[in-house]
Design a protein around this nucleic acid. Sequence first.
DNA 1: CTTGCAGACAGAATATTATTCAGAAATACC
DNA 2: GGTATTTCTGAATAATATTCTGTCTGCAAG
Lengths: 156, 156
Amino acid sequence: MDVVLDNTDLQILERMQANARISNADLARELNMAPSAVLERVKKLEQKKVIQGYSTQINPASIQQKLLAFIFIRSSEGFTCSSSTAQALAAIPEVQEVHHIAGEDCYLIKVRTADSSTLMQLMRNQLQKIPNIASTKTTIVLETVKEQQQLVIPKI
Amino acid sequence: MDVVLDNTDLQILERMQANARISNADLARELNMAPSAVLERVKKLEQKKVIQGYSTQINPASIQQKLLAFIFIRSSEGFTCSSSTAQALAAIPEVQEVHHIAGEDCYLIKVRTADSSTLMQLMRNQLQKIPNIASTKTTIVLETVKEQQQLVIPKI
DNA sequence: CTTGCAGACAGAATATTATTCAGAAATACC
DNA sequence: GGTATTTCTGAATAATATTCTGTCTGCAAG
């Protein structure tokens, strides 16, 4: 299960993380390798699920998704967090992230909607209907200063 | 500043959001358009900053980033959240997100590190040295059930 | 030692794609 | 209705992706 990555793999990941649409030819030039060799490595990284996918970052405001909120969700059975609750949360498209967290609250979710009234609708119509949710505590984001899913690639 | 997107743009965004490396030719085939027309639209979406970038999703565990945490940060000057504090937070590579939030706490940040000791090191060496930070409240993620930065593309 | 095997790579050949451009079609704007 | 602007198609060309063959290397079993 534990995948071994050498320095070349990390170089590839670093560049592809910053720009998923870099051409294989450019990548090969930067690494001073043949395109075929680089392609072979990328394919293997995909197979090994080191690379999980390629996504386009869209400006949320341009598609009318101006509201971002984090919601802490407490289960009705104290510290018992059933995975079915997590699945129900994850099934909501507006819910971008579902994290099972340490402490009294069971889950922390990240939600993106058009505006605050849409959020309230979602909480009323979707969240309240999920069993075992005792309470929610919502944190509204006023302004996002930084948002990147880029990880720190280790150096060898 | 407000960008107008028609249905074709949204179709492009939906497909590229799910797979940033889809070829322009495939995209054109799916939309029954000429590749040149599709390319023109994608270029414009980039120029208009609707498309902010393309990123590769890497399995964090495969590069030894097993710990995820959210930290609430309270400013020492009560509700006054200076933007310099936000900039200092954003400058830390392990800090993936910095959100200015409503309420008593100023900022909510998302941090990814190798393990808990690395997180504590980071909090001691980096966070504590930022001026105007009064207190921090850390929430450790035990398990991430869902994590996608994909937005809900509206339908016209 | 050497034989054999497996992984990683280069280089070439071919299939596919990206990109550009001219002009046609559609749209919006007086 | 006419004109300007945008958006599109189709073809040509440049560049790229992908496949394949063979080489080289490290490594391990005999």
